[in-house]
Amino acid sequence: MSTGTDILLAETGAELRKTIRAPEFVIPTLALPVCFYLLFGIMLSRGGAAETLLATYGVFAVMGPAIFGFGAGVATERERGWLDIKRVSPAPAWSYIGAKLLATLVFAVFALLPIYVAAATLGGVALEQSAWLGLLMTHLLAVFPFSLLGLALGFRFGANAAIAMSNLCFLSLAVLGGLWFPIALFPSVMQGVAYGLPSFHLAEVALSFTRYATDKGTGDHLAMITIMTVVLGGLAYLAWQRQRT
């Protein structure tokens, strides 16, 4: 007799297997953030930006697997009819999404690991234990809004369009959200845009655990993240309903 937990775990295991067998997904999503971090956070800034960019590139590192894993992954599996086979089977719908979330969280840990190690060793970043924990939890928290965004894209668009849209969202959220450069460098119009992006607020929360908190409004940022997560969840639900004919 199988319980929901058994199904969720089995589904998660299957997700992870699928994921690690796709090197064209794994290598860029794991390597790109840490390479960017080594280049901009350690080498070009001579360590000066190691701490701030740890906060923002951590969000960046999580964003890739979440948006692409869900956006492209769901669209492909839906288009290939795999989702229908699942729906005909007695597997509960939430186990499919829950397993993807868990797998993305695991993946996020592995994407974050090299960045944290690089920050601590090469970048000389040192934080209180509670700050490390808070930073890590914030980065893992980022999985949720971005996964829901990916899910909405995956349900709404076909495989090819979903990949294109995922890319667009991924780059916009990274650049406009201030993950690559501080938004203070932007014109004020673009700064306004940043306030509408979850990536910006997640980065601000992450920064609040470093010595470079830009303001004290962590509560406001968390509230914005919560609102955006709920909205993205709603969008994902609507896209899911829409594709069910």
């Binding site: 775990l9 089995a10 589904e11 998660t12 295991g13 992870l16 797998a103 695991v106």
Partner: peptide, 14 residues
């Protein structure tokens, strides 16, 4: 077989 994979991965992550 999948549950073991998942439990292993989750344990390693934690």
């Amino acid at each position: 077989m999948h549950a073991k994979t998942a439990l292993g991965a989750l344990a390693v992550s934690v």
